[in-house]
Design a binder for these strands. Sequence first.
DNA 1: AAATCGGGGAG
DNA 2: CTCCCAGATTT
Length: 385
Amino acid sequence: MPPRKRPEAQLDLLVARADPGRSAAIAALTPAQRDDAIVGQLVAWFELVARDLPWRRRRDPYAVWLSEIMLQQTRVETVIPYFNRFLERFPDVEALAGAEIDEVLKMWSGLGYYRRARVLYATAREVTARYGGNFPGEAAALRELPGIGAYTAGAIASLAFDQREPLVDGNVARVFARLFGIDEEIRTTGAVKRLWEIAWRLVPEERPGRFNEALMELGATVCTPRDPQCGACPLEALCVARASGRVMELPRIDAKKKVPVVKMVAVVLRRGPLVLLARREEGGLFGGLWEPPMVEAASIDEARALLAAVGVGPAIELREAGNVKHVLSHKELRVAVVAGTIPGKTKAPAVLGAPYEKAAWLHPDDAEIGVSTLARKVLAAAGGT
DNA sequence: AAATCGGGGAG
DNA sequence: CTCCCAGATTT
């Protein structure tokens, strides 16, 4: 969805031009005046440039909640097609509550952080059973639902219920760090506390959701991490970082340590058009998803216990089908893929052991099951689908 | 406070 | 390659 064309002429009336006396201008305002100016400038700017996003077309609690869960640590552009497909298949909370978890996971496949799909399903059932299909409107009640933390509760309460509730996400944290010159490492407890206090102070009684959305929109489109467009910012004249030449230094974020490498072996067994897939236990990595069985192992020889478990004996010919690299946020998986063919009529193993709860011969795309991107890479490496 | 939990897009 | 995204939850 392309951003709406910016009406430059109107924007110029709002955006203060570069001004050497900016520091003095900020200092001349009382704190309350500065806050009022921030809210006013930001909302006026947002009214002009707001992107046309699918979840902005229906601000009902179900659509807001669904979009906010999907948007957790996930880019807008990535979410859009998932959101549209999801709403088409599950048009309301009752439809979602009446589905099977495996179909929900299927609709979530490729989006990542699959625990979100499970908490989504759990919340749909709870809202249907306990609240008669109506989401609670208070942030405190929303916060009790699975998968809804401080940010998401504030987002739903303000956007869908017009409650004066603040929110702080990655965008807001960056905007505040620059706007108010917060030097502290942005993820520390102290900084997070400050950010929420500022958000509480600023969020207006009048259309709080619009203000919250404007704040995030500014962080996403103007006050970006790499190449902030200060010349197009409605808050330029009010920004501490801009006035002190520290825009690129803020927010302060300490480097994250590099992720460990984990070597694995996956086995792709075919039986005619079907593939042996195993369902991972809920709770951990890729919980509830189906995949070709794999195990942490430094070599194929080290994975012989898994091969035995899936019924690969001396009579079954295996070939090395290649290697797959898959990077997660906290580890890097390097998977050696082996492939083979099993005679027809062979049953799937009843027990595979952790982390798998069961196994079956399935078609990865046709079955009503969730499949991770890693599993798709492994299947692709083995050839065909 | 640190670790866990996906995947991809931008520079 | 690095960074980080409309975070939540557990340890």
